[in-house]
């Protein structure tokens, strides 16, 4: 009886969770699909109230710039920290300390990261509001996110395979390059893409540091840019006049994130198959 109840509870919870997600996606897609057009995707926003008409092209490009910058600035050190912890660090105390730092970073509210980047990068260092300042704030935000996943991926490499490489007299670096990274490439790419999605959806770190209400598509790291989440926020804040385009923006964001996720999963699965089943 107890077992049945538990099972019923589990199934109900799963159904509720799944239907909530489906409803959410469906709702946004139904509401947003109407405003999607070639013009919406390729034109800058226009209108008496900005964004009421026209498109979101600079916001899409801007978001891609922010995400790419964050991935370069955050992803590379994240993977390096994970490699260090897994393959180079021989002191347990040091490893515990680094993990603590990572946990602390992941606990920082994103608005605080924005504030920090604003006062330090934008003001003190004089970078100004630009893609680079905002990208740096996002990078700090996604660093622990990627690091944890990368470390987990490295831990899954069969130790005997790594040992076999060492036993041939090969260096740690060669082993990492030839065995570890290719073995984990699926998980690493998926961690980076998920980190990218996380960065793409974040608004708080961008508000003071690089994202603006209106700008042309950026051409350099030192230019400010529009971003999808901030644009969405501004459209909703303007009231009912631009709600339709707001849903359109949400639609584009969700499609971008969904497609990235699916691609990451497919890639990870393919690599997995190749490396684990021969």
């Amino acid at each position: 009886m107890k077992g049945k109840l538990t099972k019923l509870w589990a199934v109900c919870s799963m159904l509720i969770a799944a239907s909530l997600i489906l409803f959410l996606f469906g709702y946004v897609f139904v509401q947003g699909a109407g405003s999607i057009s070639w013009e919406f995707l390729t034109q800058p926003p226009r209108g008496a109230v900005l964004g009421m008409e026209g498109g979101i092209f600079p916001a899409i490009v801007g978001s891609l710039w922010f995400t790419a910058t964050a991935l370069v600035l955050g992803g590379i050190p994240a993977v390096a920290v994970a490699l260090y912890l897994e393959f180079y660090c021989r002191s347990k105390k040091m490893a515990a300390f680094v993990r603590l730092v990572m946990q602390c970073i992941s606990g920082i509210p994103s608005i605080v990261l924005g504030l920090f980047a604003y006062s330090f990068l934008v003001k003190s260092l004089g970078w100004g509001r630009c893609v680079l300042s905002a990208g740096a704030a996002l990078a700090i935000m996604i660093l622990p996110f990627i690091e944890v996943r990368a470390e987990k991926a490295f831990q899954e490499v069969p130790p005997q395979m790594i040992q076999a490489s060492y036993h041939l007299g090969c260096s740690r670096f060669y082993t990492i390059q030839k065995i570890v990274l290719p073995y984990c490439s699926g998980e690493l790419v998926s961690a980076l893409i998920l980190g990218g999605c996380y960065a793409m959806g974040a608004t708080a770190p961008l508000i003071f540091t690089g994202a603006v209400a209106y700008a042309a598509s950026p051409t350099s790291l030192f230019a400010p840019a529009m971003a999808l989440p901030l644009h969405l926020y501004l459209l909703v804040a303007q009231g009912s006049t631009s709600l339709k385009t707001a849903y359109g923006t949400a639609f584009v964001m969700m499609v971008l994130i969904l497609v990235s996720n699916v691609l990451a999963t497919l890639y990870a699965r393919r690599r997995h198959k190749k490396w684990r089943n021969g």
């Binding site: 005997q160 040992q163 076999a164 041939l168 007299g169 090969c170 684990r276 021969g278």
Partner: peptide, 19 residues
Amino acid sequence: EDQLRRQVGLVSQTPSPFP
């Protein structure tokens, strides 16, 4: 270390071919 490991090779218990 790597020179030593190269000159004194080791094959472990479970076969561990690279994939």
